[in-house]
Nucleic acid binder design. Structure first.
Lengths: 223, 223
DNA sequence: ATATATTTTTAGATTTGCCTAAATTTTAAT
DNA sequence: ATTAAAATTTAGGCAAATCTAAAAATATAT
């Protein structure tokens, strides 16, 4: 079955908003999709008749297994295209999302499976998010503290264990935030500090404490 | 300016139908676009207000310079994507058209220019049709007789000078037709005959006469 | 030159996806 | 347990792109 780009965007948004198995509110969806709640209600009725979701009025919405399957396919396309853009066409990792929003609606399944092979069956996109495989299986997010990463590896900041104001201030000062892509340059055994490099900036040093609390999603190749 | 996929398809169809500078008939367009003449009339009125074409009712339609520019951009995208699919993703040259019909509507100009560079600024698509460059300049179609082509080069059958029934019968027998992709394997000086290979078939020999009359569009790399 | 056939346009609907404004339901607060 | 606030849905419309059926213009044939 083939769905419009608009419908696919609804399915994707619900998937992302749907933590665990709670249902998603109309307003939350309207917000995520930059549209009006009334439009969301309209669309939910249509998607319900297509059995992509469970919807009872005033009760919010949940994806059916079929809806989830579709969502995962779209996410697979999105993340593969993002990686293609960064890895093969030299785009910056911050400029690819918008383009992938369009590319993810190209329908050919064969295309996406070939692209997957061309990229060597990658496990994560440029932001460190996992890429579902050909069967829709989503690999666990590969996350670890900066202190655990090998020299010369790279990844994307994805979480901070110590959320104290002091820590956040320090990170802000070093212009590190969620989504910041960094590379491990050198590790000092003496004090456990780590030298990291952010994009075009000069390498900076972070203490063992910071390195242990800064969580990074790392790329990973191979099947 | 950004146009809908539907509008882009109209512009492209008019461009292809518009020989020299004659105007294109409503019915011809409806035919090419697999739609009804009434729908074409509706759309032509819209495209006229956008100054992409000259249209007087009952008088047919012509692209304005602006319309032509848009058409060339779309064709550039289409052909680059086709080549990408064949060259990088191992698609057969006959299965790429349909997918490229979707990909050609992805809007990012930067994407297409990067793709162009990634493919090494190719001059022709897998069917031998010329690819407009970044400025919209369309290289002349690189066409020559099989007899003139170097050994190991390849191309796509694109015309036949001698259109006699006998010639056509012979070509049909060897399953050569417009669009057939072939490779020059060996040339025999003695009699001017040429050994060619078609896709997955065994190599076949064609006489000097045939080789001189079989016109092929050949691929070409580099700026 | 006039009738007939063909092409093209108009008129009026339909579907998709969105909107605003008003009504309804649910939730939260006292 | 009411009432006020917030969330959600309904009702009625709009624009894009299509359609069918009917009308109008152009082309063709004798």
């Amino acid at each position: 079955m083939k769905y419009s780009a608009s419908k696919e965007n609804y399915i994707k948004a619900i998937f992302h908003l749907q933590q665990a198995d709670e249902s998603v509110a109309t307003n939350a969806l309207a917000d995520a999709l930059q549209t009006k709640p009334a439009s969301v209600t309209d669309m939910l009725k249509k998607l319900k008749t297509q059995k992509l979701l469970q919807y009872e009025k005033y009760r919010g919405v949940k994806l059916t297994p079929e809806g989830k399957k579709l969502a995962v396919q779209i996410i697979r396309k999105h993340r593969l295209w993002e990686l293609f853009l960064v890895e093969k066409l030299q785009f910056g990792w911050e400029e690819v999302h918008e383009i992938a929003e369009e590319l993810e609606h190209i329908s050919s399944k064969k295309l996406i499976d070939r692209l997957d092979a061309f990229l060597d069956f990658p496990k994560a996109d440029p932001h460190g998010d996992p890429i579902p495989d050909i069967n829709g299986k989503m690999p666990a997010l590969q996350q670890s503290a900066v202190s655990e990463m090998p020299v010369n590896s790279s990844g994307t900041v994805n979480g901070i264990s110590d959320q104290s104001a002091d820590m956040l201030e320090l990170l802000k000062h070093k212009s590190i935030q969620l989504g910041t892509r960094l590379e491990i340059k050198k590790k000092f055994e003496v004090d456990g500090s780590v030298e990291i490099k952010i994009r075009n900036q000069q390498p900076v040093n972070i203490s063992e404490h910071v390195a242990k609390n800064l969580l990074v999603a790392y790329d990973n190749k191979g099947k």
